[in-house]
C-alpha cells in the first residue's frame, strides 16, 4: 500500500508492505536512524517519536496508521536551531551515557512537558515510566527534564 507521512516537516510517500511498523518506516525506508528499537513488547520507549505532537512508541504502530499524520523524530526536534532546549538540558546535566535510549527519552520528555509544563520530580519520574535507561539510573535524566522545564523545554 502507499502511505504519505509528514516527517520532520517533509512529506514522504512510499509504497510499503502492509505490516511495516512505523519505526521501520522511519529507520529503513527514510534512513532516519536516530529512533532506536530496544525491545519487542512496547516496554522500553527507545522508539518514541511524536505523532501529531504527542509521544508514541513507533514500534507499536503500523506505518499505515500514521498515513496522513505528522511525525517528529529526534532528527527534527530542534527544527532550524542547533539544539532544542531539552537536548541542551540533557547535555548540560549529563542525562545520557551510551545514547541508545536517548532519542526516545528526549522525545518522551518533551511530550511530558507539553502536557505538564512545570512538573514535580515525582511527576517527571512517573511521566518517564515508559522509557527504560540502563546507564544513567535516571538521576540526571530527571535533573535534565526539570532544568528544561525552566528553559522552555515544552516547545
Amino acid at each position: 500500500m502507499q502511505v504519505t507521512i509528514r516527517v520532520n516537516g517533509n512529506n514522504t510517500t512510499h509504497e510499503i508492505e502492509d505490516r511495516l511498523l512505523l519505526v521501520h518506516y522511519l529507520r529503513d525506508v527514510l534512513g532516519l536512524t536516530g529512533t532506536n528499537i530496544g525491545c519487542d513488547t512496547t516496554s522500553c520507549g527507545a522508539c518514541t517519536v511524536h505523532l501529531n505532537g504527542e509521544s508514541v512508541k513507533s514500534c507499536t504502530m503500523l506505518a499505515a496508521q500514521a498515513d496522513g499524520a505528522e511525525v517528529t523524530t529526534i532528527e527534527g526536534l530542534a527544527g532550524s536551531d542547533e539544539m532544542h532546549p531539552m537536548q541542551r538540558a540533557f547535555r548540560e546535566n549529563h542525562g545520557l551515557q551510551c545514547g541508545f535510549c536517548t532519542p526516545g527519552m528526549v522525545m518522551a520528555a518533551v511530550g511530558l512537558l507539553r502536557e505538564q509544563a512545570n512538573p514535580t520530580e515525582e511527576q517527571v519520574r512517573s511521566g518517564l515510566e515508559g522509557n527504560l535507561c540502563r546507564c544513567t539510573g535516571y538521576h540526571n535524566i530527571v535533573q535534565a527534564v526539570l532544568a528544561a522545564a525552566k528553559e522552555g523545554g515544552a516547545r
Partner: peptide, 14 residues
C-alpha cells in the same frame, strides 16, 4: 553528546 542528542548515535543497525 551533541551528535547522540541530535541525530542519534551510529550503532551497528544504523
Amino acid at each position: 553528546d551533541p551528535r547522540l542528542l541530535t541525530v542519534g548515535g551510529t550503532y551497528v543497525d544504523d
